[in-house]
Amino acid sequence: MPVRRGHVAPQNTFLDTIIRKFEGQSRKFIIANARVENCAVIYCNDGFCELCGYSRAEVMQRPCTCDFLHGPRTQRRAAAQIAQALLGAEERKVEIAFYRKDGSCFLCLVDVVPVKNEDGAVIMFILNFEVVMEKDMVGSPAHDTNHRGPPTSWLAPGRAKTFRLKLPALLALTARESSVRSGGAGGAGAPGAVVVDVDLTPAAPSSESLALDEVTAMDNHVAGLGPAEERRALVGPGSPPRSAPGQLPSPRAHSLNPDASGSSCSLARTRSRESCASVRRASSADDIEAMRAGVLPPPPRHASTGAMHPLRSGLLNSTSDSDLVRYRTISKIPQITLNFVDLKGDPFLASPTSDREIIAPKIKERTHNVTEKVTQVLSLGADVLPEYKLQAPRIHRWTILHYSPFKAVWDWLILLLVIYTAVFTPYSAAFLLKETEEGPPATECGYACQPLAVVDLIVDIMFIVDILINFRTTYVNANEEVVSHPGRIAVHYFKGWFLIDMVAAIPFDLLI
């Protein structure tokens, strides 16, 4: 008679799926529990143990900040960024110097990925580790590398530091407007667009060049630039800015003055950032001319202004700041037409079709709590990747769950009947059967004279019903998954307890 339990259901295979997918890609990662103190490590794979030199037993239950890997060259700011990422709910990448158990130093890129439950609360953290440099290539500990984003994938490793954006290309926007319009339909740009040429040739750093990471940081200074100062900065030398009595002219307006920039070969870094931020506020060169004239017309309804409409929906549905990093990277690809469009465009503009998908598509409701890094690593669709929660398995109709209350009560009843059979069957065979043979035949009273025979008949009927119930009862397979398919249940029961239950259900007393 089957006594099969499996009270692990309803099970959740999400954690096993993450481990299996990460292991298949030869990654070095740990999984931490966000619900406990210090976000203790609950799993670390073999790749991480080989990377740091510690065994799994030495890593388990330690804080996922990996303070046991810190050393003299470990930056405090990087460690603080990892700790801050564990307090938030967004994906974050941090470069930090770690030390192995043998004392060797290596520069590592740590990717902190939160995993949320159905309520939107962070319950786990996945920390992925990628070695960037070994100890002989690690720089000085005073050099802070965590304020910069990861290198873009479309640049060669040897040319990542030679990417320079020439400031004269930004200063000569109005001069290039006529050349853009003359391109017409034969050019790649839309009317009114501004073409910015980027020099990728390796050259020595000069005062006129600005690194790509500095251009990325310009967006942080746009908020500090007032509207009046932006307007004066875009007017140009024809209309000098008016300053109040006793007030000095704005240095932001002076930063885009061609006369002032041409007199000296070098520009201050602050002026460069502010000038680029001011130019980015204009949607095209037409807006710059309109600002000089004193009238700013409404933005025209053409394809170039609607190019950012799908980007707005993608940004609203993005799951991490990696989408913004990807957008900034692609927006700086050289030799393309940049349409400086305000994100607050007309909502009635139709979304044009684009061959290049900048932001990841909208994630469906079932995966809105899973970050983009987890979705990318697992390579699963929205119909396959579940949320991290207890999910009731989908069972067929008329199927009994093996952990249901009805099955528990039924098993206790069958257990009592088995005990009765084990006690009274030998007793009936030894004593009652002998008395029946010696006594007179009682054929007239039937079952009324033999109450134990009636009980034995009921017990046999219950055993037959138990066999039928076992054909529709779920079970737990070797992978700790609840199986509810009727065919698989029948095959599993035939290979197991079916023969024993059938022999126990045969009414031998009635056959004798």
Score class of each variant (00 low, 15 high):
residue 298 P to R: 07
residue 315 L to D: 15
residue 24 G to R: 07
residue 180 V to S: 08
residue 74 T to V: 01
residue 21 K to M: 08
residue 287 D to C: 06
residue 258 P to E: 11
residue 120 G to A: 12
residue 226 G to W: 05
residue 36 V to K: 15
residue 316 L to G: 11
residue 215 V to E: 15
residue 64 C to Q: 01
residue 249 P to V: 15
residue 111 D to H: 14
residue 299 P to V: 05
residue 264 S to D: 04
residue 305 T to K: 06
residue 142 A to N: 15
residue 26 S to A: 14
residue 118 E to D: 11
residue 103 G to K: 15
residue 60 M to I: 15
residue 274 E to P: 07
residue 44 C to S: 04
residue 211 A to K: 15
residue 355 D to K: 14
residue 377 V to M: 09
residue 100 R to Q: 01
residue 128 N to G: 15
residue 123 I to G: 07
residue 370 V to Y: 11
residue 28 K to G: 06
residue 305 T to E: 14
residue 317 N to I: 09
residue 171 L to T: 15
residue 116 K to C: 10
residue 341 V to D: 12
residue 48 F to N: 01
residue 384 V to W: 09
residue 64 C to T: 06
residue 315 L to V: 14
residue 84 Q to C: 07
residue 265 C to L: 08
residue 78 A to Y: 01
residue 8 V to R: 11
residue 356 R to Y: 08
residue 15 L to C: 09
residue 324 L to V: 14
residue 220 N to R: 07
residue 113 V to N: 08
residue 199 D to F: 01
residue 364 K to M: 10
residue 174 T to K: 14
residue 98 F to E: 01
residue 29 F to H: 01
residue 89 A to D: 13
residue 128 N to W: 06
residue 260 A to D: 15
residue 135 K to I: 06
residue 145 T to G: 08
residue 70 H to N: 03
residue 38 N to A: 14
residue 168 P to V: 01
residue 355 D to G: 12
residue 151 P to S: 09
residue 31 I to W: 01
residue 14 F to E: 12
residue 91 E to D: 12
residue 170 L to C: 15
residue 208 E to I: 05
residue 104 S to Q: 09
residue 278 S to G: 09
residue 178 S to E: 10
residue 269 R to A: 13
residue 75 Q to H: 07
residue 354 S to I: 04
residue 71 G to F: 01
residue 31 I to Y: 01
residue 62 R to G: 14
residue 267 L to H: 11
residue 70 H to P: 01
residue 285 A to R: 11
residue 178 S to N: 15
residue 220 N to T: 06
residue 31 I to S: 01
residue 24 G to M: 14
residue 126 I to T: 09
residue 241 P to G: 12
residue 272 S to P: 10
residue 295 V to K: 11
residue 6 G to R: 01
residue 24 G to N: 12
residue 369 N to L: 09
residue 332 K to G: 09
residue 144 D to M: 07
residue 306 G to Y: 14
residue 331 S to R: 11
residue 81 Q to D: 15
residue 253 A to H: 14
residue 301 R to P: 10
residue 134 E to T: 15
residue 137 M to C: 05
residue 152 T to S: 09
residue 108 C to Q: 01
residue 354 S to V: 12
residue 64 C to H: 01
residue 125 F to Q: 12
residue 155 L to V: 15
residue 140 S to L: 10
residue 341 V to N: 07
residue 294 G to D: 11
residue 87 L to Q: 15
residue 242 R to H: 10
residue 156 A to W: 15
residue 125 F to K: 01
residue 68 F to Q: 01
residue 92 R to T: 15
residue 185 A to I: 06
residue 226 G to N: 15
residue 88 G to Y: 13
residue 220 N to H: 06
residue 56 R to C: 03
residue 46 D to N: 15
residue 271 R to H: 15
residue 205 P to L: 06
residue 23 E to H: 03
residue 140 S to K: 14
residue 55 S to K: 13
residue 198 V to E: 03
residue 170 L to R: 11
residue 174 T to I: 12
residue 245 P to V: 09
residue 12 N to T: 11
residue 224 G to L: 14
residue 66 C to D: 01
residue 45 N to L: 01
residue 2 P to Q: 06
residue 250 S to I: 11
residue 8 V to C: 08
residue 123 I to E: 09
residue 373 K to Y: 05
residue 268 A to M: 06
residue 75 Q to F: 01
residue 108 C to G: 05
residue 228 A to M: 06
residue 35 R to A: 06
residue 122 V to I: 08
residue 354 S to D: 10
residue 152 T to V: 12
residue 174 T to F: 13
residue 45 N to K: 01
residue 5 R to W: 15
residue 208 E to C: 01
residue 87 L to C: 15
residue 379 S to F: 05
residue 50 E to D: 07
residue 220 N to Q: 06
residue 338 L to T: 15
residue 75 Q to L: 07
residue 148 R to F: 06
residue 168 P to G: 14
residue 99 Y to L: 01
residue 208 E to Y: 11
residue 255 S to Q: 12
residue 223 A to R: 14
residue 104 S to L: 08
residue 230 E to R: 08
residue 328 R to G: 14
residue 264 S to P: 04
residue 332 K to F: 01
residue 107 L to P: 15
residue 25 Q to D: 06
residue 332 K to Y: 04
residue 19 I to L: 09
residue 329 T to H: 14
residue 361 P to D: 04
residue 243 S to M: 15
residue 164 R to P: 14
residue 338 L to Q: 12
residue 144 D to R: 06
residue 94 V to R: 01
residue 307 A to S: 14
residue 99 Y to H: 15
residue 177 E to P: 14
residue 16 D to R: 11
residue 23 E to I: 01
residue 173 L to T: 15
residue 289 E to P: 08
residue 126 I to S: 06
residue 333 I to E: 14
residue 149 G to F: 09
residue 119 D to F: 09
residue 211 A to P: 06
residue 92 R to L: 07
residue 362 K to A: 09
residue 321 D to E: 11
residue 313 S to Y: 12
residue 186 G to C: 05
residue 379 S to I: 03
residue 225 L to S: 01
residue 97 A to Y: 15
residue 187 G to N: 12
residue 141 P to E: 10
residue 196 V to F: 01
residue 238 G to S: 08
residue 244 A to C: 08
residue 287 D to G: 08
residue 326 R to E: 09
residue 369 N to P: 07
residue 52 C to W: 15
residue 280 R to E: 10
residue 331 S to N: 09
residue 72 P to T: 04
residue 62 R to V: 07
residue 125 F to P: 01
residue 284 S to Q: 05
residue 31 I to M: 08
residue 127 L to H: 01
residue 41 V to Y: 01
residue 246 G to I: 15
residue 64 C to L: 02
residue 324 L to Q: 15
residue 29 F to Y: 12
residue 25 Q to G: 07
residue 253 A to N: 05
residue 63 P to I: 01
residue 50 E to P: 01
residue 128 N to R: 06
residue 50 E to H: 06
residue 354 S to G: 14
residue 340 F to D: 08
residue 310 P to V: 11
residue 255 S to R: 14
residue 108 C to I: 01
residue 14 F to M: 07
residue 327 Y to D: 07
residue 205 P to W: 04
residue 137 M to F: 15
residue 184 G to P: 14
residue 374 V to G: 01
residue 271 R to I: 15
residue 380 L to F: 07
residue 18 I to R: 01
residue 335 Q to K: 14
residue 213 D to P: 07
residue 297 P to V: 10
residue 195 V to T: 15
residue 155 L to P: 07
residue 247 Q to A: 11
residue 201 T to A: 10
residue 70 H to E: 01
residue 176 R to W: 03
residue 240 P to H: 15
residue 298 P to W: 04
residue 4 R to V: 09
residue 236 G to M: 04
residue 344 K to M: 12
residue 351 S to T: 05
residue 200 L to C: 13
residue 246 G to Q: 05
residue 74 T to I: 01
residue 257 N to E: 08
residue 133 M to Q: 06
residue 311 L to I: 07
residue 187 G to P: 03
residue 311 L to H: 07
residue 335 Q to H: 13
residue 65 T to W: 09
residue 228 A to R: 09
residue 139 G to N: 07
residue 376 Q to L: 03
residue 84 Q to W: 07
residue 269 R to T: 07
residue 67 D to P: 14
residue 337 T to C: 12
residue 32 A to L: 01
residue 245 P to T: 06
residue 43 Y to G: 01
residue 322 S to I: 08
residue 341 V to H: 11
residue 384 V to H: 04
residue 300 P to I: 14
residue 314 G to Q: 07
